[in-house]
Amino acid sequence: MLRRILVPVDFSRASACALAVARDYCPEGATVRLLHVLNPSELASRTAEPKINPMHAKEIRGEAEQQARDRLEAWALDGEEIALEIGKAAEKISEHADAWEADMIAMGTGSRTGLAHFLHGSATEWLVRHARQPVLAVHEVDLHEDQRRHLPPLD
């Protein structure tokens, strides 16, 4: 029985679809946790601008973390948990799923192909091969009207 469903989100439409599907299949009494993984290189690029004083790097990281938390809270429904990690997405998702004792990982999968796929890989693909939990991979699908009701805000 599913008691804990981890839903990694990158705030894409595919993530929103995965969250909607996870909510639809989530049994009563189970917990859904939304997880966002901040990429350290993206954080570094924010502080690498010449006009930013390196002394403010910690402040900039804190702002990035708070922005991610705010977005997670906007996506979460009452009773759902949120979590934030910093690191390589696939590895952090796997570690978090193990530590939280998730019963399933439900995540969106994009349409990255060619050079982008070669350079960055796919967190979903890696997790399907290596995670200790079942992984539900959800593409950008047309959702049923009931599922769209609770679709999180997209940019």
Rank of each mutant, 00 (worst) to 15 (best):
residue 98 D to M: 05
residue 35 L to P: 02
residue 82 I to K: 10
residue 18 A to N: 04
residue 22 A to P: 02
residue 37 V to C: 06
residue 69 R to W: 01
residue 20 A to V: 09
residue 24 D to A: 14
residue 45 S to D: 11
residue 73 E to Y: 05
residue 23 R to N: 09
residue 94 S to A: 15
residue 78 D to N: 13
residue 12 S to D: 03
residue 72 L to D: 06
residue 42 E to Q: 14
residue 11 F to C: 06
residue 77 L to P: 00
residue 35 L to N: 05
residue 29 G to M: 12
residue 58 K to R: 10
residue 21 V to P: 00
residue 1 M to S: 13
residue 108 G to T: 03
residue 47 T to L: 00
residue 105 I to D: 00
residue 79 G to Q: 06
residue 33 R to C: 15
residue 28 E to K: 13
residue 75 W to C: 04
residue 86 I to D: 00
residue 77 L to V: 06
residue 97 A to N: 08
residue 39 N to R: 11
residue 103 D to E: 10
residue 47 T to K: 02
residue 48 A to V: 05
residue 65 E to W: 01
residue 16 A to Q: 02
residue 80 E to H: 09
residue 65 E to Y: 01
residue 46 R to N: 06
residue 39 N to G: 07
residue 109 T to A: 07
residue 77 L to C: 08
residue 76 A to F: 03
residue 20 A to P: 04
residue 51 K to G: 08
residue 73 E to P: 00
residue 16 A to C: 10
residue 100 W to I: 00
residue 109 T to C: 05
residue 22 A to C: 08
residue 83 A to H: 06
residue 24 D to E: 15
residue 78 D to R: 11
residue 98 D to N: 09
residue 94 S to H: 11
residue 77 L to S: 12
residue 32 V to Y: 02
residue 109 T to F: 02
residue 1 M to G: 13
residue 61 R to V: 11
residue 57 A to V: 05
residue 87 G to R: 00
residue 9 V to I: 09
residue 22 A to K: 05
residue 8 P to T: 10
residue 1 M to F: 05
residue 2 L to S: 07
residue 95 E to W: 07
residue 66 Q to G: 01
residue 90 A to I: 03
residue 10 D to G: 09
residue 100 W to L: 04
residue 96 H to K: 12
residue 5 I to N: 03
residue 108 G to H: 00
residue 5 I to K: 05
residue 34 L to M: 07
residue 98 D to Q: 12
residue 57 A to F: 04
residue 97 A to R: 00
residue 98 D to W: 03
residue 56 H to M: 14
residue 91 E to I: 09
residue 85 E to H: 08
residue 42 E to R: 13
residue 87 G to P: 00
residue 51 K to F: 15
